[in-house]
């Protein structure tokens, strides 16, 4: 079978990640805490708030939190892959019948599991402590997030393939990924941006992820977001194909 060892590798990588200092706490607990605390601070300051503010609390902030969790998962993936490459771990794994795609798949599954765990916790904690009640089409939103995450992860592959050493992986990833949030339409509608930035925003995949996530969170029908899904799929296919070409194992 092509993916021989996938399940065992995934399970071990998950355990290894949770053994890292701050592994579970940093990945799962901190984002949830930040999300709830920010929500309460913003919520208290503007008790019955302007429309924009309450819209941000009920839709913008949850989507922002989801996007941040996804991006941090991607950065973590980029870092791990480059540490594994630099340390000769990838090379050692390669000197077995293990296929390269099995190694990558295992890491992606680990990241998806952790992302899912964080989001479930966020929703559960949010139901109790978030100022605005969270009533969200959970299945739809999970699916939307899965699509977005895969797409953003594929950009992570590409970064991981090109970045020379682990020391550069995190900062380069951050420099590429975080500014995308600013123009993704989360804080201001894309149409309100200066024309030059609008062009950039249309190219950046995060814009489509945000549009999809916000829409599904608010209860839009999937048919209204087929364009977003298509764009994200296109990014995924292009980045995966490209990184398969340029990926260095040592």
């Amino acid at each position: 079978m092509m993916l021989r060892g996938l399940w065992k590798l995934t399970w071990i990588e998950l355990k290894i990640f949770l053994r890292e200092p701050l592994g579970a706490f940093g990945t799962i607990a901190i984002p949830v805490l930040v999300f709830v605390v920010t929500g309460r601070i913003v919520g208290h300051r503007e008790p019955s708030a302007s429309l924009a503010a309450s819209n941000f609390i009920s839709v913008g902030l949850p989507v922002l939190a989801s996007v941040l969790i996804t991006i941090s998962a991607v950065l973590s993936l980029v870092t791990i892959i480059s540490i594994y490459r630099e340390g000769g771990i990838l090379k050692r794994l390669r000197a077995t019948p293990l296929r390269p795609q099995t190694i990558l798949t295992a890491h992606v599954v680990v990241k998806l599991l952790l992302t899912a765990a964080t989001l479930v916790l966020m929703v559960l904690v949010g139901k109790r402590y978030y100022p605005v009640g969270i009533h969200v089409p959970l299945f739809g939103f999970t699916l939307a997030l899965l699509i977005s995450t895969c797409s953003i992860l594929s950009m992570g592959f590409l970064i991981a393939s090109i970045v020379p050493t682990a020391r550069f992986a995190q900062p380069i990833g951050a420099v590429i990924l975080y500014p995308m949030i600013g123009i993704s339409g989360l804080f201001a509608p894309v149409a309100a941006l200066p024309p030059a930035l609008q062009v950039v925003a249309r190219v950046v995949p995060l814009t489509y992820a945000v549009s999809l996530l916000e829409g599904i969170w608010k209860g839009d029908a999937w048919s209204a977001h087929l364009g977003d899904v298509g764009a994200l799929a296109l990014v995924f296919i292009a980045c995966t194909a490209l990184s398969a070409k340029v990926f260095r194992w040592q």
Binding site: G87, K91, R92, T96
Partner: peptide, 13 residues
């Protein structure tokens, strides 16, 4: 079976 020069495994495996 292969033993590589200066290979490493995951730190916490």
């Amino acid at each position: 079976g292969i033993q590589l020069q200066e290979a490493q495994l995951q730190k916490r495996i």
